[in-house]
Simulated scan of single mutants.
Amino acid sequence: MAVAISDIGKEVRSILYGAKDGVFQYDQKLSYSTRTADGVQLVLNAIRKDEKADLSLRTVYNYGNYGLNATFTTSDKVHVLASVDKIAPGVKVSLSATLPDKESGKLLVDYINQHVHLKTSVGMTTQPKVTLSAASGYKNMVFGGEVAYSTEKSAVSNYGLALGLHAGDSQLAVHLQDKLETLKFMAAHNVSKDKMLAAEITRPVAGGDVTFHLGIARRMENGALLKTKVDHKGTLSALYEQRLATGERFVLSTQLDTLNIGGKAPKVGFALDLA
């Protein structure tokens, strides 16, 4: 199946920022998940940040091609995502909203087949913002484009292009964003089956300050994940993640400003996921 444009360069983002695993966490987070007899998944999250604790309860229920995801927070907000998959061949329709915000509703439509992946998002307002992206590929190459249109201003508000290439153990991606004014180059390389390097470089097309992130990820023999990354500001981050045999996962992350070691205390955070 064709990939979405947001998946172009996802290997690099997974190393530098995390995806399902390897997410750098500089707060204190505790998660507990369980499943009811009716098949409803419940996930309770507690996060402590800057002397403040936040709680959230996420409920996930899937029945056939139907899905309902709702997250209740201590800020009196409810994030809801309802979806219907295969409403037509290759078509998935979703509706998302953050209650009670009446302006947050979005209608999402995905169409995917062997050759193309189309994504459409329409704001559920009187003057909605509409975004459309399309991606396709040929052999080991993927490419795509996206555009956003503001009905309030009756004008295109943003657009961009992306190109990705998989060559053996290497993955390359180039994104032209912000109306083609920002260039982002991304690269990942599998040094071995257990070690991967990644780099992300961003600069304005017309010239200006260059930003970069460099990272390395390694999977140990015991299954633990080690990650280290550094950016253009001299910020060094490290992560250790271990999944226990009983299903629990522990993540320890730290961040250090190498250019101001004596004047700025390092950040240390952890996350514990209880199955």
Rank of each mutant, 00 (worst) to 15 (best):
E241D: 03
V43W: 04
L108D: 13
K10A: 12
S192P: 04
A2V: 09
V116R: 02
D101V: 00
Q242H: 10
R35G: 09
L197E: 10
S6T: 15
N113F: 09
I15S: 00
A97P: 04
D50N: 12
T151Q: 04
D110V: 08
S31G: 13
K92L: 11
G137H: 05
M196A: 06
R35Q: 14
A19K: 01
K92N: 12
L81A: 14
L239V: 02
F212H: 11
N140D: 15
A2F: 10
G263D: 10
P128C: 06
R203K: 12
E152H: 14
N69A: 05
S237R: 02
A245Y: 07
M196T: 08
Y66R: 13
E152Q: 15
A37G: 12
K184F: 05
R13H: 11
L44Y: 14
V268S: 01
H213N: 15
G105E: 08
L239H: 01
A134I: 09
G208K: 02
K92C: 09
P128V: 05
L214G: 02
V251F: 01
L55C: 09
H232K: 09
K193P: 07
T151R: 02
Q171R: 08
N158T: 07
S136P: 03
R218Q: 10
K77F: 09
V251M: 03
V109P: 03
A206F: 09
K86I: 12
D21S: 08
E248I: 03
I261M: 11
R58W: 07
L236E: 01
K77I: 06
E103Y: 06
V210N: 06
G90N: 03
K193R: 12
P204R: 01
Q242G: 01
L239M: 03
A46L: 10
A245N: 09
G223D: 02
A167W: 08
H115T: 14
S33A: 13
E11C: 07
E152F: 07
P100I: 01
P266K: 03
L180I: 03
L214A: 04
E51D: 15
L44F: 12
V191E: 14
Q242T: 03
T131F: 05
L272R: 02
K153L: 10
A134G: 10
G168L: 07
A167Q: 13
V268D: 02
